[in-house]
Simulated assay, not measured.
Amino acid sequence: MTPILRWALIGASDIAATRMIPAMRALGHQVTGVASGSAVRAAGFAAAHGIPYGTVDVAALVARDDVDAVYVSSTNERHRAHAEAAMAAGKQVLCEKPLATSFDDARAVVEAADRAGVLLAVNHHLPGADTHRRIRELVRSGAIGRPLAVRVSHAVSLPRRLHGWRLGDRPGAGVILDITCHDASVVNPLLDRPAVDAVALPARQGPWQAGSEDAVVAAIRYRDDVLVQTHDAFTVPFAPTGLEVHGDEGSILAADVMTQDPIGEITLRDRTGIHPVDVGARRDLYEIVLAAFAEGCLDKGRPTATGHDGLAAFAVADAVLRSTSTGRREAVRGLPEELDA
């Protein structure tokens, strides 16, 4: 039986309202309280979602005895401070991506969790999807032979309700830390090897005065010269998302799989023909994340994306982001040998 957790929310966010609270309650979890930087917003969010306690005092919220775990979904530049505050109170932490807005800060969050002896996971919803689990199974079974290349299409239209800080110029804004890190959260476990370097071309395409990139195309090289292409955007309203994995003995083509919903179709192409792939169950992605996190709290399972997984995904996005500034190929920080140093 999946453990039942009592949650504190740091951040009265859209993702908490539209995805996480419904998923928590579907699993029987409880939401004890919510903290926001605005007392008015905290009270309004609590009232709107039937949460007993709303506050601006993060320390008081995470110290409560009726809180087992903390979900951090404040704006990106606050993730480190809020995650560390929860860890200091001895709480288990599920943090929204990205872990922070710099590699050093992201690594510091992971190290703080290790020191505190608490579970840290990152809310990368895609790796747990039944479609992506099936794709990984195909690759690991040798269905396409030796992996050579991956192509990710993750160009979408940013909903108007999310046009705020994501289109600004402060740390954590822009499409790379919003979407590219999700791509990496999928590709890293799929290829099961580290990313080495990346080069990227950014653009500002939208009908708004964006303070940061709202579209980017990147090329990322993984160990053993596996090449990955990504196209991420806030500006494309009608294209399907997709993932392609190409090997020397076959290709996997997956349509509509880079989404928040349990949809999408997978096709395997090899020398014997074109084969539709049965996905099996199509569970809610956020319920998958929360159930795996709850099992991890009892050492009975592994989160969909651990803190270390989140750091590895951030490192790829960080290299892409640095390349947009320098115009050069940038090394991915935190290769295993560096992290072990």
Rank of each mutant, 00 (worst) to 15 (best):
C297I: 04
G164R: 10
P98C: 10
A59Y: 10
A281M: 10
V93D: 10
A106P: 00
I176M: 02
F293D: 11
A112P: 10
R115Y: 11
T241Y: 04
A88F: 06
Q205G: 03
F293Y: 02
A42Y: 04
C181E: 06
T259D: 05
A315C: 07
L191A: 03
V56G: 09
E96M: 09
A83C: 13
P240G: 06
S323V: 08
K91W: 13
P127T: 12
S36F: 01
G280M: 07
A254D: 08
M24S: 06
H163E: 14
A112W: 15
L148W: 00
G172N: 02
H163F: 14
K91M: 04
H308G: 14
R282C: 12
V320Y: 02
H124I: 15
Q205V: 14
T326E: 02
A89Q: 01
R160C: 11
R283Y: 06
H246Q: 15
S73Q: 11
T18W: 07
A281P: 12
G273R: 07
S102K: 01
V196A: 08
L126M: 12
M24P: 05
M258I: 11
T304P: 05
E287G: 08
T326H: 07
D214L: 02
Q92T: 12
S13R: 12
H132D: 15
V289E: 09
W165M: 15
